[in-house]
């Protein structure tokens, strides 16, 4: 690399090799693997929780979807009549729909619960 023939530099390299000598494992690798295992479990639990919450919210919309499908089939597949009113997918319409089917207090509790779970998950992930 540089100045390899300089004995002073060789001494310096030797000293620095000792100075930064690799450290024995002493259980470090096991600690890292343990942390990885715990984070993986937590990530899976959070994913399952998020899937469950999303599934519940989506499931609550299924009756509307069935009503829409039934309405469309009653009109006939090739009818020239105007299409039935399609539900809006805007955030406010979804929240209104959930509030009507589950009640505003339940919706508030669910939203608070989701926020709390999010925060707990984030904090736990940082601490693991």
């Amino acid at each position: 690399m540089m100045m390899d023939n300089d004995p002073l530099n060789e001494s310096l390299k030797a000293l620095l090799s000792d100075y930064a000598a690799p450290i024995p494992d002493d259980g470090f690798a096991a600690l890292v693997k343990d942390r990885i295992g715990r984070r993986t479990k937590l990530r899976r639990a959070l994913l399952a929780g998020a899937s469950l919450s999303g599934g519940i919210i989506a499931g609550m919309q299924i009756p509307k979807l069935i009503d829409l499908a039934v309405g469309a089939s009653k009109r006939g597949p090739l009818a020239n009549a105007a299409l039935p009113d399609l539900p809006s997918l805007s955030f406010s319409h979804i929240v209104d729909g959930l509030a009507q089917s589950a009640g505003t207090p339940m919706l508030m509790i669910a939203a608070t619960g989701i926020c709390l779970l999010w925060w707990l998950g984030d904090t736990a992930m940082d601490s693991l």
Binding site: Y19, A20, A21, P22, I23, P24, F28, A29, V32, K33
Partner: peptide, 18 residues
């Protein structure tokens, strides 16, 4: 990952300690 961890943990820890 296990191989990487075993092979390099000593150097990385020494580097960070310094």
């Amino acid at each position: 990952f296990d191989d990487l961890l075993r092979a390099h943990q000593g150097m990385i820890r020494a580097f960070l300690r310094r």
